[in-house]
Design a protein around this nucleic acid. Structure first.
Length: 845
RNA sequence: GCGGACGUGGCGGAAUGGUAGACGCCGGGGACUUAAAAUCCCCUGAGCCUUGCUCGUGUGGGUUCGAGUCCCACCGUCCGCACCA
C-alpha cells in the first residue's frame, strides 16, 4: 500500500540516512569499473548555503548519479575552501576566532548540503584551513621552490597606515582603506612569487586541447595571458643623450609614426619631474580610475617634453616625445610610438595635439596620403608611403622591418606577454603559512620537510591592528634548520588561490604522509566534468591549470590539464519588491517572504498595500530578493527544489526563481508519486496487454533523457520526463504501462532521488541509486508513421500522416491530391517539386 | 572605448536550413465537492470577412524551393575588462 501523498519531511531524511549507512556514494580507488570524476567548485564557508550553490551542486549531482547508473565508478567529492579574508573580518567585527567561525560555518553548511541529498563521497571531505591539507600544500610549495619555480622579489602593496595592514585591491575604496578611511600608501615589500610566466606558452597552447570548455572562458584566458609578437627597439635623440626603448606589434607602420609616448611612471618622465609642469602632469595622471573602462572613456592626455627623437630609418624625421596617460608602465617597455592612421587611441591623441596623420596601409582603394577621418584603419592591406615597404602586405612588412632592425642592430623581434608572475604572499593571518625561515647567517632557508606542517597558531587576537602572526609571542621564533642559531619564521601566508589550485588532486587521493599518490591520481584525473561560476573564468582556472602543469613538470603527476570539460552555470535571479520612500525618494526593498504575490500584483503582507514589482535580477542582500535554501527545502522538500533548479532555463543562463514555479514543481512530485503507485502486478487481465505506442514513447524518452543529461541540457531532459509522465497517465493499464512507470522511476532518480527511492523501495529491488540506467531498444526509437508537411511555395497548406519511408512519387501524388493544395495552387501549373523524404513536399508553382 | 553573449507568446523557454511556439508557469472555462483544498478535462501568439485566411522569432536588406536558424548592415539588453601598442 502506498500512502496518498509523498512526504518529503520524512522521506528525505530516511533515504539520506540509508545512503549514508550503505556508503552508497563512496568512491572505490580499486574499482575495476571505468572512472568518472564529477566536480563542482567547492564553496567558501561563508555561513549559509546560497541558492546558487544549490543550482551548481544539483547539476553536478544529476550527472554524478547518472554516471553511476551507467556503470561508472564515480568520484563526486565535496569540501571547503576555508581560508580567506571574511574569517578575519568576522573576527574583527564579532570578536570571534577565524578558526572557530569557519568551522562552525562548515558544520552548519554541511547540514544544509546533506538535506539536499547530494551524492557526495563525504569520506573524502577536506577543509583547506586544516593542517592535514595545508601541510601538504607547504610540501608542494617547497618542491616547486626546489625546482626553481618559486622566488622572492620586491613588490608594491596597498598599505593602510592606520590599521597597519596590507589591503587587497577590493579593500581600497577611492584610494582609501575601507575600514579606516585612511589614504592608502604604496609600500614595497619583499614577497614570494610563482613563475607562472614560465608556463605562459604552454597555458596558451593548452587551451587548444580543451574542446569541452566554453569558448568564452578560453578567450578570456587567452587575452589574460596576452601573447604579442613584435619589435622592440630604441629611439635616440640627435645627441644620443636620450634613448627610449619601445615595443610595437605593428612595426610595419613605422613610417606612419608621428610621436613617441611614455608612461607617467617611466624613468625618463620621472627624470624630468624636477620641472614643475612635468611633475604636475605626472600627478594628474595618477588621479582618476585605473580600470580599463574608466581609462578608455577618459580623455587622452599628453605632455610634450620638448625632446625630439630620430626616426630609425631616417635621421631627417624627428618625432616629439610625449608623456601620455594612456601608456601603461607595466606592459612592454612602458613606451610606444604612435601611428595615428592605424590605431584608434593614437589618432584620438594626434587630433587633440595637432600631430600628423600619415596613412601607410591602404585596403585596395585609391592612395590618398592625406588622412581626413577620425577613425583609424587597423585592417589588412598593402603598404604605402613607406619607401622600401611599399606594396608589401602587413605580415611581410612586419618581417622586413624586424629583419632590418636586427641587421642594423638597433632592435629585435620579440614576444611580450601580458601575464605576470603570480605574487602569492599575503600579509594575513588566516592562510597557509609559507614554510620558510629567515636566518641572519644563512638567509632564507626552507623548512625541512620532516618539520611540516608549519601549523598556524590559533592563540591569536585581532584587537590590535597588524598581522597577528608577526606579534605572536613565540610562534615566529625558531632555530635556523641549517646553522641552529636563532632565526625568524616567515609570517606571510599564501594567497587562498593556492588552496584551490590542487584540491582536486587531494580529493582523488589523500594519503597521510604525502600530498597524493600519483598512481591513484592517474586513475581519476582529469576531472571529467567541472562545474562552477563564470567568475572563476580567469584566476582560479588559470592557477589550477598552472599548478597541474608545474607538478607535471617536476615529475609528480602525469596529467597536464586538470579539467577535461568545464561548464559555467548561470545565476539564480528573482524579482524585486519595493516602494519609494516618500521622504528621500529612495526605494525601500522587501523580501519575497514579506510579500503576497497574486497575478500581476504584489502586496505587502504587513499592511496589504501594493508594492512595485521590479526587474528580475541577481539575488542580493541589498535588494532583499533572496530565498533561503533551508526555508524552501522545509516547505517543499529537497526533490521539488532540485527539480526547479533543473527546469525551464538552460543551465548556462540565469534561472528566475518564483513561488509559482516551485509550487508547480512540488505538485509534479506528488503527481509522479500518484503515478508510481499505479504499477500493476504483471498478472492476468489488462496487465498482460502491450501498448506499442507507449513502449515507443518510453524508449525514445530513455534515449533522449540520457543524451540530454550528458549534454547537461537538464531543461530538455525535464521536458521529456513531463511528456512521458503525461503519456503514462493517459495510457490504459497494460504490461507496457507498468514497465514505463517502473522505468520512469529510474529516469527521475538522478533528479529526484528521494522520491525515486521511496517508490523503488516498494518493488523490493534494492536502492534506486544502485539500479542501472534502463536500456533502450534502438528499433523503438524509429517512428513507423510520419506526418508530412505539404507546402505550396514554402507555405504550409496541409499535412498528411503516412507510413514511414514512402517513395518520393507517392508523396508527390499525395500532395497533389490534397484539396487544400489544389485550392492554394489555384489552377497554376507546378513547375518544381521538392521532396524531403519523411518530412515535407514543397510544390513550386 | 574594446571584447563577448543574447534578442522567439503574458513569463521561462523548444525547434540537424524543412509543420515556429515542444515542455513548464500564469490566465480562462468546465468536472468532482454541501463547500474549500487537492485532483482531472478543455482552451490559451495576434488579427480577421473563422470549411478557412492573413500576419508573426528586435529592425532593414540578401542567399534559398524554403530562414528563428546562413550572410551583410543596424538597433537594443546584459556580462567582462586588460589603453596589450
Amino acid at each position: 500500500m502506498t500512502s496518498e501523498r509523498f512526504d518529503p519531511a520524512s522521506a528525505d531524511a530516511h533515504w539520506q540516512a540509508a545512503w549514508e549507512s550503505a556508503q552508497t556514494f563512496r568512491a572505490d580507488d580499486a574499482s575495476p569499473k571505468p572512472r568518472s570524476y564529477v566536480l563542482e567548485m567547492f564553496p567558501y564557508p561563508s555561513g549559509r548555503i546560497h541558492i546558487g550553490h544549490v543550482r551548481n551542486y544539483t547539476m553536478g549531482d544529476v550527472l554524478a548519479r547518472y554516471k553511476r547508473m551507467q556503470g561508472f565508478e564515480v568520484l563526486h567529492p565535496m569540501g571547503w575552501d576555508s581560508f580567506g579574508m571574511p574569517a578575519e573580518n568576522a573576527a574583527m567585527e564579532k570578536g570571534v576566532h577565524p578558526g572557530g567561525w569557519t568551522r562552525a560555518n562548515i558544520a552548519a553548511m554541511t547540514e544544509q548540503l546533506k538535506r539536499l541529498g547530494f551524492s557526495f563521497d563525504w569520506s573524502r571531505e577536506l577543509s583547506t584551513c586544516e593542517p592535514e591539507y595545508y601541510g601538504h600544500e607547504q610540501a608542494l610549495f617547497l618542491d616547486m621552490y626546489a625546482a626553481g619555480l618559486v622566488y622572492r622579489k620586491e613588490s608594491a602593496v596597498n598599505w593602510d597606515p592606520v590599521d597597519m595592514t596590507v589591503l587587497a585591491n577590493e579593500q581600497v575604496i577611492d584610494g582609501r582603506g575601507w575600514r579606516s578611511g585612511a589614504l592608502v600608501e604604496k609600500r614595497k615589500l619583499s614577497q614570494w612569487f610563482l613563475k607562472i610566466t614560465e608556463f605562459a606558452d604552454e597555458l596558451l597552447e593548452g587551451l587548444g586541447e580543451l574542446k569541452n570548455w566554453p569558448e568564452k572562458v578560453k578567450l578570456m584566458q587567452e587575452n589574460w595571458i596576452g601573447k604579442s609578437q613584435g619589435l622592440q627597439f630604441k629611439f635616440h635623440s640627435a645627441d644620443r643623450a636620450t634613448e627610449v626603448e619601445v615595443f610595437t606589434t605593428r612595426p610595419d607602420t613605422i613610417f606612419g609614426a608621428s610621436f613617441v609616448a611614455i608612461a607617467a611612471e617611466h624613468p625618463i618622465a620621472r627624470g624630468l619631474a624636477n620641472d614643475p609642469a612635468v611633475a604636475a602632469f605626472i600627478e594628474q595622471c595618477r588621479k582618476g580610475g585605473t580600470t580599463a573602462a574608466e581609462i578608455e572613456t577618459q580623455e587622452k592626455l599628453g605632455f610634450d617634453t620638448g625632446l625630439r627623437l630620430k626616426h630609425p630609418f631616417d635621421d631627417g624625421i624627428e618625432l616629439p616625445l610625449y608623456i601620455a596617460n594612456f601608456v601603461l608602465m607595466d606592459y612592454g617597455t612602458g613606451a610606444v610610438f604612435g601611428c595615428p592612421a592605424h590605431d584608434q587611441r593614437d589618432i584620438d591623441f594626434a587630433r587633440k595635439y595637432g600631430l600628423p596623420v600619415i596613412r601607410v596601409v591602404a585596403d585596395g582603394d585609391a592612395v590618398d596620403p592625406v588622412f581626413e577621418g577620425n577613425e583609424a584603419y587597423s585592417g589588412p592591406g598593402a603598404l604605402v608611403n613607406s619607401r622600401f615597404l611599399d606594396g608589401m602586405d602587413v605580415a611581410a612588412a612586419k618581417a622586413e622591418v624586424i629583419a632590418r632592425a636586427e641587421q642594423g642592430d638597433w632592435g629585435h623581434g620579440t614576444t611580450v606577454w601580458r601575464l605576470r608572475d603570480w605574487g602569492v604572499s599575503r600579509q594575513r593571518y588566516w592562510g597557509t603559512p609559507i614554510p620558510f625561515i629567515h636566518c641572519d647567517a644563512c638567509g632564507v632557508v626552507p623548512v625541512p620537510k620532516d618539520q611540516l606542517p608549519v601549523v598556524l597558531p590559533e592563540d591569536v587576537s585581532f584587537d590590535i591592528p597588524g598581522n597577528p602572526l608577526d606579534r605572536h609571542p613565540t610562534w615566529k621564533h625558531v632555530d635556523c634548520p641549517e646553522c641552529g642559531k636563532a632565526a625568524r619564521r616567515e609570517t606571510d601566508t599564501l594567497d587562498t588561490f593556492t588552496n584551490s589550485s590542487w584540491y582536486f588532486l587531494r580529493f582523488a587521493s589523500q594519503p597521510a604522509d604525502r600530498p597524493f599518490d600519483p598512481e591513484v591520481i592517474k586513475q581519476w584525473l582529469p576531472v571529467e566534468q567541472y562545474i562552477g561560476g563564470i567568475e572563476h573564468a580567469i584566476l582560479h582556472l588559470l592557477y589550477a591549470r598552472f599548478w597541474t602543469r608545474a607538478l607535471a613538470r617536476i615529475g609528480m603527476i602525469d596529467v597536464r590539464e586538470p579539467f577535461a570539460s568545464l561548464f559555467t552555470q548561470g545565476m539564480v535571479t528573482h524579482e524585486t519588491y519595493s516602494r519609494t520612500d516618500p521622504v528621500n525618494g529612495q526605494p525601500v526593498y522587501f523580501s519575497p517572504a514579506e510579500v503576497e504575490r497574486g497575478g500581476e500584483n504584489a502586496a505587502l503582507k504587513a499592511d496589504g498595500n501594493q508594492v512595485e514589482i521590479g526587474r528580475v535580477i541577481k539575488m542580493s542582500k541589498s535588494k532583499k530578493n533572496v530565498v533561503d535554501p533551508d526555508d524552501i527545502i522545509a516547505q517543499y522538500g529537497a526533490d521539488a527544489v532540485r527539480w526547479f533548479m533543473l527546469s525551464d532555463s538552460p543551465p548556462e543562463r540565469d534561472l528566475p526563481w518564483s513561488e509559482a514555479g516551485i509550487e508547480g514543481c512540488a505538485r509534479f512530485v506528488q503527481r509522479l508519486w500518484r503515478l508510481f503507485g499505479q504499477i500493476g502486478n504483471g498478472g492476468a487481465g489488462a496487465d498482460a496487454q502491450h501498448d506499442a505506442a507507449l513502449d515507443r514513447k518510453l524508449h525514445q524518452t530513455i534515449a533522449a533523457v540520457a543524451s540530454d543529461i550528458e549534454a547537461l541540457s537538464f531543461n530538455k531532459a525535464v521536458a521529456r520526463i513531463y511528456e512521458l509522465t503525461a503519456a503514462a497517465e493517459k495510457a490504459a493499464p497494460s504490461a507496457s504501462r507498468s514497465d514505463a512507470i517502473r522505468k520512469l522511476i529510474l529516469l527521475v532518480s538522478p533528479m529526484m532521488p528521494h522520491l525515486a527511492e521511496q517508490a523503488w523501495s516498494q518493488l523490493n529491488l534494492g536502492l534506486a541509486a544502485d539500479a542501472p540506467w534502463p536500456p533502450f531498444d534502438p528499433a523503438l526509437l524509429i517512428e513507423d508513421e510520419v506526418t508530412i508537411a505539404i507546402q505550396v511555395l514554402g507555405k504550409l497548406r496541409d499535412t498528411v500522416t503516412v507510413a514511414k519511408g514512402l517513395p518520393r512519387e507517392e508523396l508527390e501524388a499525395l500532395a497533389l491530391a490534397s484539396e487544400k493544395v489544389q485550392r492554394a495552387l489555384d489552377g497554376k501549373a507546378v513547375k518544381k517539386v521538392i521532396v524531403v523524404p519523411d518530412r515535407l513536399v514543397n510544390l513550386v508553382a
